[in-house]
Design a binder for these strands. Structure first.
Length: 580
RNA sequence: GCCCUUUUAGCUCAACGGCAGAGCAGCGGUAUCGUAAACCGUAGAUGUCAGUUCAAUUCUGACAAAGGGCUCCA
C-alpha cells in the first residue's frame, strides 16, 4: 500500500500541474486530478487545442518555477452557489459540485499560491520544500467519468517522489521493465510473430513458442488427469441458433464475429466453448451417479476485440482457453471449487507466480442489461462463492460488475512487467444455464433435475499465459519449459562427430538439444546461446573427447566442470521432474 | 472505436528540404580456436497513397501497422 504522505504529495503535484496548465493554456478546463499507484494524473479539456509531448517539458519548467511560491494549501469552505459561480464556465467541476451537494457533503476549495481548485483535501504540508522531484510521463485520452458516451479529455500522467533517488529508481524500473516486455523478448527469442498479412490480434507461434505452449498444456493435462477431468475436442464454429438459446446472442453479441451462411443456415465462430461442451453432456440421459462430469478442452475461441484493445499476446482475437465445464449436483459445489482452487494454486506454484491476488467478481445490479435477470439466484451464487473463498483462506477483493452474464466468479489476477493487472484463472458459478438449455440428470429419487455448472479456466488464455511467463522469467524459462534445454558447442569442426554422438544420447532421453556447428569462435557461440537464454551449454574439445566426457556451463555463466553424459542427464531429469 | 506518440535494411540506430550511412544478423571466403563479440569481402532500406516544392526520409493530409492510455475483457 502507498503511504498517505506520498499520496498527498502526488495529489499536490497534480494541483501544481493543473495550475501550470492554466498558465500555458488559459482556456483549458480542469476535470479531476487524483494520485494513483505510481504517481498521479490530471484530466483536462483542452478544447480545440492540441497538446503534444513537447508541451510536457514546458509544463515541467513552469511547475518548477511556480512551486517556489507555494508555501501551503489553505482550505476554503464555499456554499454550493459560490462554488458553482466560481466554476460557471467549467461543466466538469459544476457536475462534481452538484453531486457533492446532492449527497450533502461539504464543498471545499484549496488555495496554493494564486491557484484555487475544488478538492476534498489531502496535500503536502510544505509544497515549496517537498514538491521537487517529479516528472510528467505521458499524454493519454480518457473519457470523462470513464464512459465512452462522454467527451474524451486529455489525461496527463506524471509521477512524484520525496527525493531524487526514489524518482530515479522509479524511472529506472520502468526502463528495466520494458526490457522484459514479452513482445520484445518474443521477437528476440523467436517465440511468436504477428503478421500484418494474417491480421492483427492473430499471433503465430513459432516452433519455440509452440513448444512452450505444448509444455504448458501437457502440464495441465497431467494435472487434470489426476483430478478426474476428461478431454473432449470440439469444432471452432457453431450455429447462431445455439447462442440465441444460451443468451450469448443478447449479452455477448458485440465481441462475436459476423455470422456466415452454410447451406442456408447461419453460423458463427465460437466466442467460447461452453455450448459445445453442454451438447456433449446432453447427448444422452445422465444419472446422478455420473456427476460430477468434468469436460475439458484447450479450445480456440474468436472474439472481436476493438483495435485499441489488442496487446501482443495479452489481448488477442483468437485465443485458446484451457476451458473446463464441470456439471454437478448442488451439494458438490464446495468440493469441486476446492479442487479447482487447489489446481490453480498448484499451477501458479509450478510457474513460480507468487504475486497474484483473488477477486470475487460480482454483478452490478445497476447495469441490469448486462446480466441474466434473477436477483435471488445472483445473490445466492455470490454468497456461495464468498463462503468458498473464505473456507479456502483466500484473501480477496470484490470486483463489482466483473461477473459474467451467467454468474459470479472467482478470478486470479497477476501483473505483467509494467505492473498492469491481467486476469488469468477463473472459476465461474453458473446456476442459470442448465435450466435455460434444459440440461438434466436423473436424481436418486427418479426425478429430473438441472445440474449446476462450474466454468473453469485454469490459465484463462494460453496466449496470455505465455506472455505473462515470458515477462515473469524475462525469457529465462525454467528447464521444464525451455524450448531448447541444452546447446552443444564443439570447439571446432574436428569435434563435431563426438558432439553429434552426445546430442543423440540427450535427444534419446527426451532432452531438447541443439548443436551449433557454425564456424565461429567459442566465445561467440557462448554469447549467442546465453542471449537466447538456453539453460545449459555443453562445450566439447580435445579434453572431452579424450576423457569421454562433457563440460557444462549454465546460462548464469557458471562453469559446472567436466562430467559424464549419463551423470548430466540424471541431473537434468531430476531438475525437470521436481520443478514444482 | 477514441486521445497522444511512433514508423529508415531481418534487428538496433544515423542523415539542415539537396548523392540515404553504420553496427549486428545474412551471404562468400580465411583462421580450427577453451567459457559473453576472430578477420577479409559482399548484398540489403525511407510503411502505403496523395499534396506543397526546382527538389521530400525530412513539411502537410489520408490510410495502414505498432506503442502508451480510455472503454471493454481471458
Amino acid at each position: 500500500m502507498i503511504d498517505q504522505k506520498l499520496a498527498n504529495l502526488r495529489h499536490s503535484c497534480a494541483h501544481l500541474l493543473a495550475a501550470s496548465v492554466l498558465d500555458l493554456f488559459p482556456t483549458a478546463k480542469l476535470a479531476i486530478g487524483p494520485s494513483i499507484e505510481d504517481g498521479f494524473y490530471y484530466d483536462i479539456d483542452f478544447g480545440e487545442q492540441k497538446i503534444t509531448n513537447e508541451d510536457l517539458s514546458k509544463l515541467e519548467k513552469t511547475m518548477k518555477g511556480k512551486v517556489k511560491s507555494w508555501n501551503s494549501f489553505q482550505r476554503i469552505d464555499k456554499s454550493k452557489k459560490e462554488a458553482l459561480d466560481y466554476f460557471k464556465d467549467n461543466p466538469y467541476k459544476s457536475e462534481l459540485i452538484n453531486e457533492l451537494s446532492a449527497k450533502g457533503e461539504n464543498i471545499t476549495f484549496y488555495r496554493s499560491g494564486e491557484f484555487v481548485d475544488l478538492c476534498r483535501g489531502g496535500h503536502s504540508e510544505s509544497p515549496s520544500k517537498d514538491l521537487k522531484y517529479f516528472k510528467l510521463l505521458s499524454i493519454a485520452g480518457a473519457y470523462w467519468r470513464g464512459s465512452e458516451k462522454n467527451p474524451m479529455l486529455t489525461r496527463i500522467y506524471g509521477t512524484c517522489f520525496f527525493n531524487k533517488e526514489d524518482l530515479d529508481n522509479h524511472l529506472k524500473t520502468i526502463e528495466e521493465a520494458k526490457k522484459r516486455d514479452h513482445r520484445k523478448l518474443g521477437k528476440e527469442l523467436d517465440l511468436f510473430v504477428i503478421s500484418e498479412n494474417i491480421g492483427k490480434g492473430l499471433p503465430l507461434l513459432t516452433p519455440k513458442g509452440a513448444l512452450i505452449r505444448k509444455q504448458i498444456l501437457d502440464y495441465e493435462y497431467q494435472l487434470e488427469v489426476e483430478n478426474g477431468f476428461q478431454q473432449v475436442f470440439t469444432p471452432h464454429i457453431a450455429r447462431s441458433e445455439m447462442y440465441k438459446k444460451t443468451g450469448h446472442w443478447q449479452h455477448y453479441r458485440d465481441v462475436m464475429y459476423a455470422p456466415f451462411g452454410i447451406d442456408g443456415e447461419e453460423y458463427v465462430l465460437k466466442p467460447m466453448n461452453c455450448p459445445h461442451h453442454y451438447m456433449i453432456y446432453s447427448s444422452r440421459p445422465r444419472s446422478y451417479k455420473e456427476l460430477p462430469i468434468r469436460l475439458s478442452e484447450a479450445g480456440t475461441c474468436y472474439r472481436f476485440e476493438k483495435t485499441g484493445e489488442l496487446a501482443g499476446l495479452l489481448r488477442v482475437r483468437a485465443l485458446s482457453i484451457d476451458d473446463s465445464h464441470i456439471l454437478m449436483t448442488e451439494d458438490q459445489i464446495e468440493d469441486e471449487f476446492r479442487q479447482c482452487i487447489d489446481m490453480v494454486k498448484k499451477m501458479f506454484k509450478a510457474f513460480k507466480l507468487h504475486n497474484f491476488y483473488v477477486r470475487l467478481s460480482l454483478s452490478d445490479p445497476s447495469d441490469a442489461v448486462k446480466y441474466i435477470a434473477d436477483e435471488d439466484t445472483w445473490k445466492k451464487a455470490g454468497e456461495k462463492l464468498e463462503k468458498i473463498i473464505k473456507d479456502n483462506d483466500l484473501e480477496y477483493k470484490v470486483g463489482k460488475g466483473e461477473a459474467s452474464f451467467y454468474g459470479p466468479k472467482i478470478d486470479f489476477i497477476v501483473r505483467d512487467s509494467l505492473n498492469r493487472e491481467w486476469q488469468m484463472s477463473t472459476l465461474q458459478l453458473d446456476l442459470f444455464m442448465a435450466k435455460r438449455l434444459n440440461l438434466t440428470y436423473i436424481d436418486e429419487d427418479g426425478k429430473e433435475k438441472h445440474p449446476v455448472i462450474l466454468h473453469r479456466g485454469l490459465t484463462g488464455s494460453i496466449e496470455r499465459t505465455l506472455a505473462i511467463l515470458i515477462e515473469h522469467f524475462a525469457g529465462a524459462f525454467p528447464l521444464w519449459l525451455a524450448p531448447v534445454q541444452v546447446s552443444i558447442l564443439p570447439l571446432s569442426e574436428k569435434f563435431a562427430d563426438y558432439a553429434e554422438k552426445v546430442k543423440k544420447e540427450l535427444l534419446l532421453k527426451g532432452i531438447r538439444t541443439e548443436q551449433n556447428n557454425e564456424n565461429k569462435t567459442l566465445g561467440l557461440k557462448i554469447r549467442e546461446a546465453t542471449l537466447h537464454k538456453i539453460p545449459y551449454l555443453i562445450i566439447i574439445g580435445e579434453k572431452e573427447v579424450d576423457s569421454h566426457s562433457i563440460s557444462v556451463r549454465s546460462r548464469e555463466g557458471k562453469n559446472l566442470g567436466q562430467l559424464k553424459v549419463s551423470e548430466f542427464i540424471t541431473q537434468l531429469k531430476t531438475q525437470i521432474e521436481n520443478f514444482s
